[in-house]
Design a protein around this nucleic acid. Structure first.
Lengths: 98, 98
DNA sequence: CGCGTATATGTAGAAGGATGAGGTATGAAA
DNA sequence: TTTCATACCTCATCCTTCTACATATACGCG
């Protein structure tokens, strides 16, 4: 969703973008990506329309809906809280053993 | 596993510890915790023995094995790499939109 | 003594999502 | 013309989580 927030983009390009940003550290499998996009569309967090892509072929471009934007913000905060807490546990909260 | 790394501890106490460290932000359900401990024990990442707990009752105390210690270290690094990359994407890699 | 509460472990069923494999189709280049 | 990159999709399987339930013991209180 964060990638889609940068502007309308189709699924295949999302995967490339993530791989590129993460310098190949993260790759989203197509078998995960497309169902996920369908779920987000079904929940009306994303909206899709068919348009010719850069290569001239038709592709399904996704955009954030208003709900999607709100959802992304709150979930980003949740993600930060969650990883902060996990970080606390992994660091051992100053009791540094290991 | 990181909590177990602090010293032998039984399942119930692990849940309390995590909840305490996270100031109630994270609570591990018993239905997730016990099967997870069983899986880790099966994979020989944890070892268990029955001992009387602080309250006098018998409880199953878990400890990291050598494999568990190694596993924890590499997985902690993986976790850091993963969350760093997700952080990059969520921040938009300096293209700051949203 | 009986009762409730905190302690302590576990299982079962349903639901959700990732994975790996496979399938389809098009446009461009070799 | 065959191969490659693009672009979409589905399916079976596995793994994990969640909720709910089930069991049992120690301790304090009235």
């Amino acid at each position: 969703m964060r990638v889609v927030a940068l502007g309308p983009i189709h699924g295949y390009a999302i995967a490339q973008r993530i791989q590129q940003i993460s310098r190949d550290a993260l790759q989203v499998q197509q078998g995960s990506l497309y169902p996920a996009l369908h779920r987000l569309e079904y929940k009306r967090l994303l909206a899709a329309k068919w348009q010719p892509s850069e290569t001239g072929r038709d592709a399904k471009f996704y955009e954030l809906t208003a709900r999607g934007r709100a959802y992304l913000i709150t979930e980003t905060e949740n993600w930060k809280r969650f990883t902060d807490v996990v970080g606390l546990i992994l660091k051992g909260t100053a009791e540094g053993v290991l």
